[in-house]
């Protein structure tokens, strides 16, 4: 499926230019962390790469046909979207969408519910759980199909330290079992812990794209340098 290539990609909303033109290649494996100030276009970019918003220009291509590639991606939204169903049914949903029979889907959902520490809440309606629990469900639901590519939009933005650690552990495990990850975050510590590569965005453009070590040791651009130093980038 890899490399994923974005070619001259740009997005407009009602004639207003949001991001682009962006040229980008993502190879298999590892975690790419997307950083940048509010409104830089991080959310827009990963949604565009995932193919859930209309491109004004350019395209995103994979080594496999678009349909196959689409089936092997998952997306975790910034505020978790819970189906009005039980925790277990939320987890089983993507498997059943892919045609798996109910019994084996529920079996697998049970395994995941235990894995994310929600075995006691399996039958509770998911929309009524806490923000951290919902985020874990959203992540487990994204991982349950063993996607080749996983997008996450600020997955720990509203979580406390303990929940953040849990999410990061799940991501590391997914990464080590063959899921390529692209995530946005505002948490520089998290980026340092998780990133293999960093994509730094500013004003709808990619300002820097480099290996994580290099990015943090010698920030390649002035804006990136200020951002890491905690200065405000405008």
């Amino acid at each position: 499926m890899f490399p994923m290539t974005a070619c001259d990609l740009s997005v407009k909303v009602r004639q207003k230019h949001i991001i682009g033109p962006i040229n980008l290649t993502i190879n298999e494996g590892g975690i790419t962390v997307l950083m940048g100030p509010n409104g830089a276009g991080k959310t827009t970019l990963i949604k565009a790469l995932h193919g859930i918003i209309r491109l004004a220009n350019g395209q995103v291509t994979f080594a496999t046909p678009a349909k196959t590639a689409q089936e092997q991606q998952s997306f975790v939204f910034q505020s978790p979207i819970m189906l009005r169903r039980s925790v277990l049914e939320n987890l089983a949903y993507p498997l059943m969408i892919n045609g798996q029979d109910k019994q084996s889907a529920m079996e697998r959902a049970r395994t995941w519910a235990t894995k994310i520490g929600l075995s006691a809440h399996m039958d509770r309606p998911a929309p009524f759980l806490s923000g951290g629990e919902k985020q874990k469900i959203a992540l487990a639901r994204a991982l349950i199909t063993s996607p080749k590519l996983l997008f996450l939009d600020e997955p720990t933005a509203s979580l406390d330290g303990a929940a953040t650690v849990e999410i990061e552990a799940l991501l590391s495990e997914a990464q080590s079992t063959g899921t390529t990850i692209i995530m946005s975050t505002h948490n520089i510590g998290q980026a340092r812990r998780m990133a293999n590569r960093v994509l730094f965005m500013k004003d709808g453009q990619i300002d820097a794209h480099s290996a994580a070590n290099a990015f943090f040791d010698t920030p390649p651009t002035e804006a990136a340098q200020k951002f890491i130093a905690g200065d405000i980038v405008v």
Binding site: H50, I52, Q70, E71, S74, F75, F77, I81, L83, R84, Y93, P94, I97
Partner: peptide
């Protein structure tokens, strides 16, 4: 309900 589910269901290729 659809506006709540929209992004998720689109993302899941339903």
């Amino acid at each position: 309900l659809w506006s709540e589910y929209h992004d998720l269901l689109i993302s899941m290729n339903t």
